[in-house]
Design a protein around this nucleic acid. Sequence first.
RNA 1: GCGGGCAUAGUGUAGUCUGGUCAUCACAUAGGCUUGCCAAGCCUAUAACCCGGGUUCAAAUCCCGGUGCCCGCACCA
Length: 500
Amino acid sequence: MKYDELFALLRRRGVLWPSAEIYGGAQGLYDYGPLGAALKRRVEEAWAAWFLGLSPDYHRIEPAEILPEAVVRASGHLENFTDPEIVCEQCHAAFRADTILEKVRPEGVDGLTPTEIAEVVSTHQLRCPNCGSRALGVPRAFNMMFGVDFGVTGRERAYLQPETAQASYLSFARMWDVGRKALPLGIAVVGKAYRNEIAPRQVLFRMRAFTQAELQIFFDPAHFDLPFDRVRDESLPVLRVPRREAGEESPEWVRASELVAPGGLPEFYVYHLAHTYRFYRDVLKYPIDRIRLFEKSDAERAFYNRIQFDVEVQLDSLHGFKELGAVHYRGDYDLGRHSQGSGRDLSVTLTSGEKVLPHVLELTFGVDRNVWALADTHLSKDGERTVWRLPPYLAPVPVGVFPLMPKHHSEYALRLADDLERAGVAARFDDAGTIGKRYARMDEAGTPYCVTVDGQTLDGDARDTVTLRDRDSKAQERVRAADLAGRLGPTLRPPRPPRA
RNA sequence: GCGGGCAUAGUGUAGUCUGGUCAUCACAUAGGCUUGCCAAGCCUAUAACCCGGGUUCAAAUCCCGGUGCCCGCACCA
């Protein structure tokens, strides 16, 4: 589906809409309606079920979302999230300072003040890459973080977190104490991140407030035992740097065992990359031929990332592969910085007596982007029919309950819907319009099951049975009303990683 | 941020160039009729010119500013 058409449909059905619309809207902010909020919650639950299911040592916490200034100073966000920007006064094009200086100063501009950068520009008589003029202005610092006043004096500064990861690093010491005091230790957070994007675009893909689901795994690089056999034979659609440099866009299928061959990637990395891939393929059920694991080159990834593959899914509405998540091997950068910044030694002593500063493997997942991607890839028009083929456990409303004839069958249907709710199966009663319209409405909302109460339900041999209609096949089956919860319930729970 | 385009009911739209009827049509929504299992039909109702200023006897229409969206560029630690 095309972008405009898809967004119109999502607005019409109340999945999401621009924030503050009555005031003309606020760029980069969106609100989720009932269907969107429910879908998003289910995506988050599915994420947690899968990734926390990888190990009993992975735990979910819920930290504060405001970071004191000292934290972002230590993490590097205060300096590095500020990309000094240089504007050409001739053609008004804007560039990051390190782009303009890359020829004369390949090591980057970190640590330089705007004045110093301006001196480098004038000393080397650098020209605007766009129009070639020498009219480059003085660099101006632009920080992507939202700063807030903190405390009553207003003199203390704090920042809305630009990523959820920092909060996990801050919690590491406490988690070590309340936990088993053993590595690996995983800390999962689902939370909001805030970035003052220069150009928010494409609805859920570049927002100023968005939800991340991240798992930070702290481990001893010398010793990270995993059941690698569980992924050894898994084929992964990887697009590695050499292949990309050869101009290839499509991935090649490589076995996990080959990726870890001597000189290759570490086992702990491939193990988690494979499970990440499985999550997109088996849980969110993106079409296999649309997923690729895109390796970032030295130049592309952040300097602290030693290995980085992005999970990308091809989306028709956005014309190509889009990043929906990533697996980052960040080394000991984060705990190192926070040890330094806080003055507290974050290294730990293992039972062997050895002292190590844990390394971090970060599994990051953009919740909002995946909500959009699930609409793009699973929602389609078959002629007149619009169907959102979400897996049952992701459907905002898993069950619709209808009276065939509202006058005669509503009472039974209302009670049935209530029974299902009480049994833990979210069900929506609908008696509006004709039966065909109700099916169509639910198809569009992604509801996998519709139950209809008819004349046979009320009396006769088939008393207390209803028709159960499947969204994808449109097939109907007569089932005992009392059996519904037991039968549908299991399909509404998100999958967990398979055991060996 | 830069350049170009666009902005009319919940959604999609006609009308804007060439100012002047009660702002068009479809779908959706709500109510009613219909013994009806895949968007059936009929009746009724609700509902819009993005915001602010200007020109004019008169502005959805022309002009200025703002906001938002789309495309391209730039940006996306």
